[in-house]
Amino acid sequence: DYEVGESVTVMDGPFATLPATISEVNAEQQKLKVLVSIFGRETPVELTFGQVSKI
């Protein structure tokens, strides 16, 4: 299970290999909103559970 505030690594898509912090969890739809730090700015990205891995 994923929790808000948890650190994960993006495994898929254009942000693969980047660390991210979970900002929202939708367990019903198996989706997460995460904040990816790009060029010093936090960018919100919506991903599925399968696109991230716990650190």
Score class of each variant (00 low, 15 high):
1 D>V: 13
1 D>Y: 15
1 D>T: 14
1 D>L: 14
1 D>I: 14
1 D>Q: 13
1 D>S: 14
2 Y>E: 00
2 Y>N: 02
2 Y>D: 01
2 Y>V: 03
3 E>F: 13
3 E>A: 13
3 E>Q: 14
4 V>T: 05
4 V>F: 04
4 V>P: 08
4 V>Q: 05
4 V>I: 11
5 G>L: 03
5 G>T: 02
5 G>C: 06
6 E>N: 07
6 E>W: 07
6 E>F: 06
6 E>D: 13
6 E>A: 08
6 E>C: 07
7 S>V: 15
7 S>F: 13
7 S>G: 08
7 S>E: 13
7 S>Q: 14
8 V>N: 01
9 T>R: 13
9 T>Q: 10
9 T>F: 14
9 T>C: 12
9 T>W: 15
10 V>S: 01
11 M>S: 08
11 M>G: 04
11 M>L: 13
12 D>G: 08
12 D>T: 14
12 D>I: 12
13 G>R: 02
13 G>V: 02
13 G>M: 02
14 P>G: 04
15 F>H: 06
15 F>T: 02
15 F>C: 06
16 A>V: 08
16 A>C: 08
16 A>W: 05
17 T>C: 14
17 T>P: 07
17 T>G: 15
17 T>L: 10
17 T>Y: 13
17 T>K: 10
18 L>Y: 14
18 L>S: 06
18 L>K: 08
19 P>M: 15
19 P>L: 15
19 P>I: 15
19 P>D: 08
20 A>Y: 02
20 A>H: 02
20 A>Q: 01
20 A>G: 14
20 A>R: 01
21 T>L: 11
21 T>P: 02
22 I>F: 01
22 I>C: 03
22 I>A: 02
22 I>D: 00
23 S>H: 10
23 S>I: 15
23 S>W: 14
24 E>T: 07
24 E>P: 00
24 E>Q: 08
25 V>F: 04
25 V>K: 03
25 V>D: 01
25 V>E: 01
25 V>A: 03
26 N>W: 14
27 A>L: 13
28 E>I: 10
28 E>R: 10
29 Q>D: 09
29 Q>M: 11
29 Q>F: 11
29 Q>S: 11
29 Q>C: 08
30 Q>P: 02
30 Q>K: 13
31 K>H: 06
31 K>M: 12
31 K>A: 06
31 K>N: 06
32 L>F: 04
32 L>V: 09
33 K>S: 07
33 K>N: 06
33 K>T: 14
33 K>D: 03
34 V>G: 03
35 L>V: 12
35 L>D: 03
35 L>Y: 09
36 V>Y: 02
36 V>M: 05
37 S>M: 14
37 S>Y: 13
38 I>F: 11
39 F>K: 10
39 F>P: 05
39 F>G: 12
39 F>N: 14
39 F>A: 11
40 G>Q: 05
40 G>E: 05
40 G>R: 03
41 R>D: 07
42 E>P: 11
42 E>M: 11
43 T>L: 13
43 T>I: 15
43 T>W: 15
43 T>K: 06
43 T>G: 05
43 T>F: 15
44 P>W: 15
44 P>A: 15
45 V>A: 07
45 V>I: 13
45 V>Y: 07
45 V>C: 07
46 E>M: 08
47 L>D: 00
47 L>I: 06
47 L>T: 03
47 L>Y: 06
47 L>C: 05
48 T>W: 11
48 T>Q: 09
48 T>V: 07
48 T>C: 10
48 T>K: 09
49 F>M: 06
49 F>A: 03
50 G>F: 11
51 Q>D: 05
51 Q>L: 04
51 Q>Y: 03
51 Q>S: 07
52 V>Y: 01
52 V>P: 00
52 V>H: 00
52 V>N: 00
52 V>F: 02
53 S>A: 13
54 K>H: 07
54 K>W: 05
55 I>K: 11
55 I>G: 10
55 I>H: 10
55 I>M: 12
